[in-house]
Design a protein around this nucleic acid. Sequence first.
RNA 1: GGCUCCGUAGCCAAGUGGCUAAGGCAGCGGAUUGCAAAUCCGCCAUCGUGGGUUCAACUCCCACCGGAGCCUCCA
Length: 533
Amino acid sequence: MTTNTIRIYNTLSKNKEPFQTLQPGKVGMYLCGPTVYAEAHIGHMVGPVIFDTIKRFLAYCGFEVTWVVNITDVDDKLINRSREKGISMFQLATAMTADYLANLQSLGVDQIDHLPRATDNMDEIIKFVQELIALDFAYASGGDVYFDVLKDNEYGRLSNRSVDSQQGDGGDQASRKRSPGDFALWKSAKPDEPSWESPWGLGRPGWHIECSAMSRRILGKTFDIHGGGLDLVFPHHENELAQSRCCHGQPMVTYWLHNGLMQAADAKGKVGGKNDRDQTQAELPAIPPADKADSASTKISRSKGAGGLAQLIERHTGERIRFFLLRSHYRSTTLFGEEPLAEAGASLEAFYRLIQRFERITGLKFYDATELPSNKHSSTFVAPTTKNDAINEVVRLRESFLTKMDDDFNTGGATGDLFEIARSMNRFIDAEQLEETAKRTPENTALLVSGMSILKELGAILGIFIKPPKQSNNNDGTAEILEGLMQLLIQVRAEARVKRDFAMSDSVRNGLTKVGIALQDGKEGTTWSINKD
RNA sequence: GGCUCCGUAGCCAAGUGGCUAAGGCAGCGGAUUGCAAAUCCGCCAUCGUGGGUUCAACUCCCACCGGAGCCUCCA
């Protein structure tokens, strides 16, 4: 059967464990998707990109992978936001889901098999709640249904919390709960809220139950991998885990994976976190209490106005953002900003130049699967037989790359090998002088192709170098160059005007007018603007 | 207050109880070039601080300093 040397860090055990599937050769994995009440931001892409890569790698290793990402399309925030916008919750959810999916596509996330929506699974959800009540792990109270955390003696294991330190005072519904840590499985609806019929009256599901219900429907009672952001460990995954385990009497998931969160790179050096509630105000004299929560946190969130993901992708290209995310380890915090993104882009250019070089020499299309196929499974790889050092180095680097991916999907380490492969290939081209037609032989050309095939093979695992890169629109320095040019022209014209050389100055101005640029003379100098039409 | 995690060169970032601590960006020197760009070669870190364990620690343990996250909705 499929043998592998993959090791995965499991949040539940806090250890790297050998990867053992429940069914031979098959993997079921579930990633918590977004609550679709607003446009996605960059932080929402971390999980999908890493899980897309994990699926690609597992498939490469010969596993048949089923990947599920849920869409939470019913929730308090959706209700509130849709009211603000004056549209129905369903309209809002549909629009925001479309935004999310478009962003995923831009980043090359195309491995998802199922995208279940909570509202399409009401029967399953209600059934799940009924089962929990029947098993006495849940109770109905005033139209709501709550999970009784005291009935579950393993509650708190995932997030390493004791039962009495959870969810504070129980919130608004405390009076309906047996204990403050109990969480809602079903919430009764107020008159004008979207609602569904249930044994407990009109209402809607709590946040956690949908994942338990939908993962069971698609992947079964126990499945292999469950992922999400580190911020979901508690309460969301703790609760999911409790619901499913208590309902089925068997583990919900073998491996719990959590990706690190994204942080704004330009917001460093702030004092404290937003949850430093017990820190005395006296220690923070410069920060007004009212602003503290927002100004002190560097975390990217929708509430802080993060967004504009589509524009970001437009500016940088999806591949650049994907590569940026894959450069570091998925469990570490990623510092996000224009600078690091631009740096990732700069390093990516070297690969694009190598690929162009390859195409120029061989006349083959790198991205065309019929001309340069990439291995879909590691077992199909055949190492080229050669004494050439550069090519043998590429074969060695391929092994190194795969070993790093085996070790808890170390994409950050693996990308390093990619750079070394590119260098080896350039060295090979230089040494064989392949840029000169006369120096090409069937042998060295074949070696070039086999080396580049390895680059393509490994790139495909990371989900890069699959399609020709789109030119970025803005961040390539065009704006700066234009500004520089304009300042030069403005200066030349100013000097001409000082010399009373109006023929020259008018020539400059008229020439610019013809290409659609208008000059404005003012007291502080000349400014310019682009005239549409 | 409770619970996690992190601190590796100017910047970003892998990693290991003992071989020369990956790679990228930037920089410097060289080859190449009419010049440049690109490409190649070379240079550029003793791993936050202080202890401890060990024959041996950047890697394990403790303390401290610094940073982040969760404990409320959050990918």
